[in-house]
Amino acid sequence: MVFSCFALITFGQRTVAPLPKCKNGFVVIAHRGSHLVKPENSIAAIEDAISLGADYVELDLRTTRDGQLVLIHNETVDHTTNGKGRIQDLNLDEVAKLTLNAKDGHLYSLPSFREALKACKNRINIYLDFKEADVAQAYGEIKDAGMEKQVLVYLNKAEQYTLWRAVAPQMPLMSGLPSSIKTKEELSAVLRQMPLEATDNISDPMLVAALKESGLSVFLDVQMADEDAIKWKAAMDKGVQGVQTDHPEALIKYLETNDLRDGLKVSRL
């Protein structure tokens, strides 16, 4: 069964854009790709996430000195490659010479955003952690790749919201919400100011239910070294639509073994 939302949903003055289609009811997001063995944010990690059956691959976007978009989480290349320095101080040709740190002894390069879009097209959705990049350029590359309906953009700064809504108002946007929110009224007030399609940091079951009623999705971050069934069950019992994980293979096996990929709650387990 394909779980998707194609029509724009209007709640008062809020219009919720459709998220990328997923064939599974409970969404599995591979954090930085499937990177327990393959390097994080690499094409190999994307390919592994695809082969495992993840619904999204989470990727981090930054910009080189000459204005090229590449995948990397940190501001510097020090910890994930054999190089040194800030990504914003390196040209793309210098980045291309770097080798990603890998546990399997193979050589991997730091990919461009265009390469990642090509690898993901019609195969897996992208949860785009928008670190430091030009919105118009990023959307242009998404559009050139024909990936407008396969990308959910995660925002890290308030100004990114304004820019994305101006450049690509139809793109679904996601961000954290203030931790001070305790009531439905407070939640509604924040969403009137900054309408979103999804969030990742609301775990109160009452607020999760209110978000769902308003057409929003909640994808909790569960990524950690000691992820297990107890933590996944706790997230699912809150009523969320999916989780971001460092262990996509184990999570998918857990969901399939317990017949839970259709999104049913796990309180019966």
Rank of each mutant, 00 (worst) to 15 (best):
I142V: 11
I142S: 02
I142W: 01
I142Q: 01
K143T: 07
K143V: 00
D144N: 02
A145W: 02
A145P: 02
M147H: 01
M147K: 01
E148H: 08
E148G: 02
K149E: 06
Q150S: 11
V151F: 01
V151Q: 00
L152T: 05
V153F: 03
Y154N: 11
Y154R: 10
L155V: 09
L155H: 05
L155S: 06
N156S: 08
K157A: 13
K157Q: 13
Q160E: 15
Q160G: 08
Q160K: 01
Y161H: 01
T162D: 14
T162Q: 12
T162I: 06
L163Q: 13
L163P: 02
W164F: 14
W164V: 02
W164Y: 12
R165N: 11
A166K: 14
A166F: 05
A166V: 02
A166E: 13
V167P: 06
V167I: 14
A168R: 05
A168N: 03
P169R: 05
M171L: 14
P172I: 05
P172A: 11
L173G: 02
G176H: 08
L177Q: 08
S179V: 11
S179E: 15
S179N: 12
S180K: 12
I181E: 04
I181P: 08
K182E: 12
K182Y: 03
K182P: 06
K182T: 12
T183Q: 03
T183A: 01
E185Y: 04
E185G: 07
E185N: 12
E186D: 12
E186M: 14
L187Q: 10
L187T: 11
A189H: 10
V190A: 12
L191W: 09
L191V: 06
L191A: 05
R192M: 12
Q193S: 15
M194Q: 15
P195Q: 07
L196D: 12
L196M: 13
E197P: 03
E197Q: 15
T199I: 02
D200V: 09
D200A: 10
N201G: 10
N201A: 08
S203C: 09
D204Y: 01
D204R: 11
P205T: 05
P205A: 06
L207H: 10
L207G: 09
L207M: 09
V208Q: 03
V208R: 00
V208M: 06
